[in-house]
Design a protein around this nucleic acid. Sequence first.
DNA 1: GAAACGTTAGGAAACCTTACTAACGCACGC
DNA 2: GCGTGCGTTAGTAAGGTTTCCTAACGTTTC
Lengths: 398, 398
Amino acid sequence: MNIPAARPTTGVTAATLREMNIRTVWSVIEGGHPISRAEIARLTGISKPTVSVLLEELLATGLVTQSPDSARDPSHGAVFFGPKPDGVHALALDLGAHRLRGVLAGPGAAIAARRDVDVQGMDAPLMVAAAAELARELVAAAGINAATVRHAVAGVPGVVDRHTGRVWQALNIPALNGFAIATELEAAVGVPFTVENDIDLAALGENTHGTGAAAESFAFLSVGTGVGAGLVLHGHLHRGHSGAAGELDSAFDAEGFAANDPCAASIVEFAEPFAPQLLGDSPSRRTPGAATTLTTELIFDRARAGHPRAIDIVEEVARRITAYIGVLAAVADVELVILGGGIGLNGDLLLERVALRLQKRLPYPPRLEVSALGDSAVLTGAAAVAASVAVEEVIGGR
Amino acid sequence: MNIPAARPTTGVTAATLREMNIRTVWSVIEGGHPISRAEIARLTGISKPTVSVLLEELLATGLVTQSPDSARDPSHGAVFFGPKPDGVHALALDLGAHRLRGVLAGPGAAIAARRDVDVQGMDAPLMVAAAAELARELVAAAGINAATVRHAVAGVPGVVDRHTGRVWQALNIPALNGFAIATELEAAVGVPFTVENDIDLAALGENTHGTGAAAESFAFLSVGTGVGAGLVLHGHLHRGHSGAAGELDSAFDAEGFAANDPCAASIVEFAEPFAPQLLGDSPSRRTPGAATTLTTELIFDRARAGHPRAIDIVEEVARRITAYIGVLAAVADVELVILGGGIGLNGDLLLERVALRLQKRLPYPPRLEVSALGDSAVLTGAAAVAASVAVEEVIGGR
DNA sequence: GAAACGTTAGGAAACCTTACTAACGCACGC
DNA sequence: GCGTGCGTTAGTAAGGTTTCCTAACGTTTC
């Protein structure tokens, strides 16, 4: 029989055994598809009588429901079990500079309600108030009992100090810097909150429901208004000692390190000299007089249309992204890099260009893919974390 | 009661319980100091009767010995237990370009015998033969039964492919490239072998017996004939998907990345223009005519003596090391960086210079220290790993 | 009727608590 | 100064509890 790798320094007792087994049973039920006692027993190696007892306990927690009978072909009188849709709920928020996005999720991160609100220009207390209002709306929209919301996770674009709970390096939302957002959110919403770096959450989203599920270790590289990476190593998020793991900018901004950010501001600046050419013959601009500002969307659109200057810029973006991945690969040697963020999601233009450069440059290049979750990766990760904490709270607090 | 973080997908049974508890008991005995049943019970939370039973099993394996009585002040008739010095043994090798170093270790990596041999210029099969001879000599020197040697670990300066067991990127010992050294060593020595990157082993050495023991995650940065880092994250070695994690050279050798290696060859090359000044007035050279070659030792000696040109070079080394640590910190955000290797060990000259630059450059600079194990870090790590595998084999195979 | 699901019954393995004896140190009284 | 009693600590023994497994047995379905 296999022994868990973690070696507790304290003794384990029969109660520990049950804790472990009940979690094992939950983990196969959580999967989603209705499953019978006998199937659970076969899958986990736990005997049928024990599975029955454990299921009784799980039913008592309200996490698990039993489908009276099921649409399975040969059912042989089996009873099927699955996660109870309204047993517990978790709140997930994605706080950006422009919008606050939220979902209410059930066990297994099944979406119960979803809604976004505008927060542009708000200061930190206003954002907290907006979050509380959004939470109320989500509960109302889902039509659930607010008491079933057991945990909440919020993603913020900055480094979260795990000791003080304060946010730093929030370049996109300066109002957040130094703000103890978790405490404030807890007070306003009335739910225990975990606040986490948004890119780290996106990585966790890819890990549970996205492209990273198959990889043993990978990096989620977000290239958008800023650049940053989230690392999932051996199936676990690596935050780093100060929560600043994957904050790649600092690797390049000093002493002879050339590669500039491939982020939006930096790219627009790089493209500025070619602005007349890029803007001038844009067919997507219906009012040529108003199209005086360069955007990354415009540049990528022009590149798709074959504009040589725009393609040059895309090549430059690919070069810069390669530099970042090179650093990630050299230090962490990840199996896979997932591209995300407003710029990174343009896989049709970037994937091949970056992959080719990586091949040339690294002895062991990582696999390269584009995020399957798109711009909802953060929210997906937050929901997954919040749901798993909520479930753990219910199972652990029996 | 705390639940181990690892969640096995298969059920656990009472036998698992015992496996876990017997390991817990071993882990407190392994510590070294003789310990009584009652103390073990207090430390682990396991009841005294159970501790007695578990100790009986451990005594039967031959891993544990019981001191008849002890020099403890109030002993109250207590019996004290500790690791048995000659219960099992493990072989540790450190294969370098010039020398093959070996130790025979007991449980807890206690040294039973130690010996080095010259392997300069040998091809791979000759090195294997030398290793087998060294193993025989170590067994003879320790005066032990060869059958008690249960596992061996060898450190090599290259990337070890964990699927094929072959060595790559062994720039210092080109003869090793593509060689399946673990298989050959096993056949020649007659002991199961684990082959691991030498810098990774050094990191593990620092983790178990060195400066890294107190840190939760750290990087061991070896700066010598080559540059590389070993990462210990959350107490575990991070090898990376191809075993190439920490192979930092590849982060810098292309497309606008300036910082050159701070390794020996690179530094000597950098110092070449100043060779006449550095060599000319060297008081440590007794035969001025023969001192025509620059070495890193000489450069550092001259810097200690206050030679301005040599100090400039040290500054340059510090700049380059800072660049490497910057990358490590940006990706992994480690708590601590331990400097090692022939160049890195010159902490008196480097520590302050690098720390100062890191402060300026990084928002969350890691702590910086010099290896406490010096040039025996690899061997220490190999011994620790080999001993723990050997012990695991005995405990697991009851 | 055969196969699959689930339950019941019996038993085994592992742990804990409680209670006991043995050893040791200290303090007090002779 | 030295013995005796008391409190503390180490270890063992006995009994009880928790948890799980195997085997056998209804029950439902095909």
